[in-house]
Nucleic acid binder design. Structure first.
Lengths: 106, 106
DNA sequence: CTCGTAGTTCGAAGTTCGTCAAACATCGTA
DNA sequence: TACGATGTTTGACGAACTTCGAACTACGAG
């Protein structure tokens, strides 16, 4: 059963914690680039499948991503609308910061 | 010995992790309201002094706060200039989100 | 010098986190 | 029906985290 928090149940601390992990931040970045849905296995992360499942769960329960099942595929997308409504501008700034950090290579 | 990371050594993940704790987010909020420096003991947090010391250390090593010693007082302030230079707008959005969340009471 | 204030350091205890391997569930296809 | 692909669940493990109390350091005031 895939459960998502309601928009107004999304907690700032949960979002910050979810995005404070390198693997999960990377997932969010790739989702933002993609703009839409992506398969679980389509992310470039150096961890096993079960670890990915764990990270998706953290992101989902924090309200950062949305997931839906389609046959054997689990499609993942950013909850950009809900996040923008709840915490205006926050997601964009975090993603922008992540990109700049990646570019600078620090 | 109080050690601070250089501006360009501040890591996004570290900042997000530092602010994902309720006590530390509260500290950052109170510092933003104060605008300047504050004594360690002047924060309204329901934890002991040694726990506060720990949280200050996490914030300091993440680059969120600056601390300096003055006699027996340790004065703490936000590293707003460095954070804004490194991750433009990020701190403001997080603090704004924290305030809104507090107001709504969710 | 002694006392109180401000804050740190040092374990200890318990919790949460990130990771993996093994086994499992589900669907489409040969 | 059997197989391969996709992804989850469970259980384990060490590492990191949060918290506390007790002992400690450093300073100013009386």
């Amino acid at each position: 059963m895939i459960s998502h928090p309601e928009r107004n149940q999304i907690q700032l601390e949960g979002v910050l914690h979810a995005l404070s992990d390198p693997v999960r931040l990377r997932i969010a970045l790739e989702l933002a680039e993609a703009g839409g849905e992506r398969r679980c296995g389509s992310f470039e992360c150096a961890v096993t499948k079960s670890t990915m499942t764990h990270h998706f769960k953290v992101l989902r329960e924090a309200g950062v991503i949305r997931q839906r099942q389609e046959a054997t595929l689990r499609l993942t997308s950013l909850r950009r609308d809900d996040l923008d409504a709840r915490f205006p501008g926050l997601l964009d700034r975090i993603l922008q910061a992540a990109e700049e950090e990646a570019v600078v290579g620090a």
